[in-house]
Amino acid sequence: MSIPRSPPGGGIYAGRSESYPNLSESHKETVPPVTQRNRRKSPDNKKATKSNIAEIKEQMSEMMELLKSSKIEQAESINKLSLDVAAIKAEVGNISSTMQNIILENKKLKDQLSKLSAAAENTEKKVEVLEADVNNLKNMPPASSTQLATTQDEIFTEIHERNLRAKNIIVVGIPEPQNDTAKSRQDYDKAEILRITGLIYNGCPQPTGIFRLGKYKSQKSRAIKVCFSSEDTAKNILRSRNKVDRENIKIFSDQTPYQRKHLQNLKEVLQHRTSNGESGLSIKYIKGIPKIVSSKEMQETSTMETPKN
């Protein structure tokens, strides 16, 4: 059950209006209307913004300068590296060239050592020949001092002449040119000798002298003496003289009169022994000295000279 209430203004609130107040109307009167206005920036804020922008631009300019200077430094560094690389390449090229020169020098030294070794071997052979001559002299009957001195002089003369002739070869079988002038005949002989030595020895050095032995006779072909500056050249030609394509051409060593006489005596002895019934005999040069040997002795000599593996 609801309790009755008295309207306002009644009772203790006497003198007030008996009706309820209009709250909406009273609110309108008491609250003033609000006006919306745009806020305007203060001048101080604009200056600060401009200052910040200017500072940012200045910082960006400094950064751009730093980037430019860094780019320049990098370019200089790259150029310096390129120069260093080029210098290193040049140095490597110099080292390679130096190594090539060293290799060539070593090859030359090896060739010189080989020549020295061959020369030493030739000297040993000559010493053996001299020892054989000395032994022959020892076995000879005693002679007067005059005869002994003459024999010694002959020995030294023979040794000297053999050393000189060791650089020469004798070519037999080249027809004598039928020309009127000596110059044309010499040119023909030179051309034939160069052709023959070129066939036998590839890269053969030029001879120091080419001349016919004896007086010129149109009906007779004289032997040709060919001189070289080295014994090795003459030896190489004599070792390969069988390569001559024409059978009527023969090549011999340049012998002294004593050597020719000794060889002729051996041929006569060989013919005499063969006519007496001995077989298998021949003349063979052993250490530069011609000797009569049998086929058995030749086999033994070949076995001794064959190098072992």
Rank of each mutant, 00 (worst) to 15 (best):
Q100H: 04
V92A: 13
Q74Y: 09
A75S: 10
N106T: 12
I88G: 08
I95L: 02
K71M: 06
A87I: 04
N106P: 02
K71P: 03
S77H: 14
I102R: 00
S77Q: 13
I72G: 05
K107I: 10
M99D: 08
Q112V: 14
S97F: 00
T98L: 11
L104A: 14
T98V: 01
K68P: 06
V85M: 12
S96R: 04
K110M: 03
I102P: 00
S77F: 14
I78Y: 02
D84P: 11
E76C: 09
K110R: 10
I103S: 01
V92H: 08
I78W: 07
N106K: 02
V92T: 15
L83S: 12
M99W: 07
I88Y: 02
D111F: 01
T98W: 01
I78T: 15
K89Q: 10
I72F: 03
G93W: 00
I78R: 10
I102C: 02
Q112N: 07
S70W: 04
I95W: 01
K71N: 13
K108S: 14
Q112T: 11
E76L: 14
L83N: 06
L66P: 03
K68D: 15
S69H: 08
E105S: 01
T98N: 01
S77N: 11
L113A: 13
K68Y: 06
A90W: 06
N94C: 04
S96N: 07
M99S: 09
K89W: 01
V85W: 06
K107P: 02
K89R: 01
A90S: 02
L81N: 15
Q112M: 07
K80H: 12
S96D: 11
K80Y: 08
Q112R: 10
V85L: 11
S82Q: 15
M99K: 03
I72M: 08
N106C: 12
N101M: 15
A87V: 00
A86H: 08
Q74C: 03
K108A: 13
L113H: 02
M99V: 05
